[in-house]
Simulated assay, not measured.
Amino acid sequence: MVKSNNASHMTKTAGKSTDESLLLTIEDLKVYYDTVSGVSKAVDSVSLRIKRGEILGIAGESGCGKSTLTTALLRLTQRPGYIAGGAIHFYPQEKGPIDLLTVSGEQLRAIRWRNLSYLPQGSMNSLNPVLRIADQFCDAILEHSQMSRREALNIVSDLLQQVGLEPHVARMYPHELSGGMKQRVTIAMAIALRPDLVIADEPTTALDVHNQRIIIQMLSELRDKLRMTIILVTHDMAVHAELADRIAVMYAGTLVEVGDVRQIFKAPKHPYTQGLINSIPQIGGQRVRMEGIRGNTPSPRNWPAGCRFHTRCTHVMPECREKVPQLLTIANEQDAQSKQPTLVACHLYTQFGAGGTHDN
């Protein structure tokens, strides 16, 4: 059965959320790039809402717009990229509602690190190679808080211990640390001022399996201990299965499925989500040949008409080539047992469901 659902799946009144559990709302966000061959629509009309205390996973192949989306949330999009439309509303506990796309640069600087922090892709390489770890902590803390240098130095040891590192690491240089240790240092820096929201872009990439497990457990424990919210960006569905509460699956700059992590792994609805999950190697059970998703992600300079996945989909129908599917709430018996509704953009459900409408 298909229920009606508005485009952003959120309630808003003059920029103020009527749901106190909401921390961040994204409405019809568009991020484009000017190129010599035309406009590249990297993120195209994405709407999401993130609740306090949850870990929201953003999944999808390389080139689907995951990192572009997260950098736009922090207004770090660089030319030739630009935010072409939409709104991002942030509701930190210490402050009133903040429109992240219209707030001044000075106000945005005050929000970063204290209320909103970022673990960039390849964050292990973001450490300054000529400064000791303690000095790098102090630089960040002093820039975004009223602490004195002595106060900042006093909390460095505690921050390192929270991520499983010994206090003496504060006196070391980045080149003296392993990859896993450097990743934990960047996580400790991101939580130094106990932000409301941490955006982690591929936090386990380039780490071995052992260190990946450590980082996953650490992020989960920090969320519970500090009551912070995490947006986790990774193409690794196994990491999402271990860490995320909900998953938003992106394809070709748009959302194709959003739902509870257990529901999505138990019964994925969109053919693209099914392909991502089926590509995960299984331990035990019946031995079957793994089948990848055929074809490649299309270019953001020329997305296909209709459903953008139809060129790779095994369930393609005539309307898939012509009509853009809307992100609708799908209700069934399995969803009734889930804590979160599942949203899917696929003609399979409007074709075989009960009809339904879409309110703009």
Rank of each mutant, 00 (worst) to 15 (best):
Q162L: 07
A170E: 06
I187M: 13
R289D: 10
H310Q: 09
D135N: 15
T102K: 13
V198A: 03
S47V: 08
R109S: 12
V103T: 15
C64K: 07
E20P: 04
R52N: 01
M124Y: 09
P271H: 02
V130C: 12
T25I: 04
P120S: 01
A188N: 12
F137M: 09
I277G: 01
P167L: 06
D44C: 02
I26L: 07
I280Y: 11
L48D: 06
H347D: 05
L48V: 08
K16N: 08
K66D: 14
T357M: 14
L177M: 13
D44M: 04
G356F: 09
E166R: 02
P300W: 00
V261L: 05
L348Q: 10
P203W: 06
P325Y: 14
L69Y: 11
L116G: 03
L100A: 08
G355I: 10
Y33D: 00
E333P: 08
L24E: 03
S117F: 05
S157D: 11
L159W: 01
A305C: 09
I283E: 14
F352Y: 14
I141Q: 04
N6V: 04
D201C: 12
F309L: 02
I215H: 03
N296C: 01
V198S: 03
H9A: 15
E94K: 13
S148W: 02
L219S: 07
T35M: 00
G81Q: 07
Q136K: 12
L24N: 02
G15T: 05
S126K: 06
N360H: 15
R75E: 11
P92L: 08
T329N: 14
T102R: 09
N5K: 11
K269F: 01
S104M: 14
G105I: 13
F265V: 05
I141C: 06
L177P: 03
L119F: 05
E333L: 15
V258L: 11
G81H: 11
V43R: 02
E202C: 07
L193I: 07
A87Q: 14
L69N: 14
K41F: 00
A331S: 13
F137K: 04
V261W: 04
E54A: 02
I215V: 14
P281F: 09
L255D: 12
R49C: 12
I58P: 06
S148F: 02
T234N: 05
T342N: 04
T350K: 09
D224W: 01
A134R: 11
D44H: 05
A7F: 13
S8F: 12
M10W: 06
S67G: 11
H240S: 05
P298A: 04
D335V: 15
T13Y: 01
R246D: 08
M10C: 13
S148T: 12
N360Q: 15
Q340D: 15
D224L: 07
T77G: 04
L160H: 06
L160A: 07
L327S: 06
A87N: 14
I247K: 04
L100S: 07
L177V: 10
P195C: 05
E106A: 13
L343D: 07
D196Y: 08
E61C: 14
R213A: 09
V233E: 05
P92S: 09
S178E: 06
I264P: 03
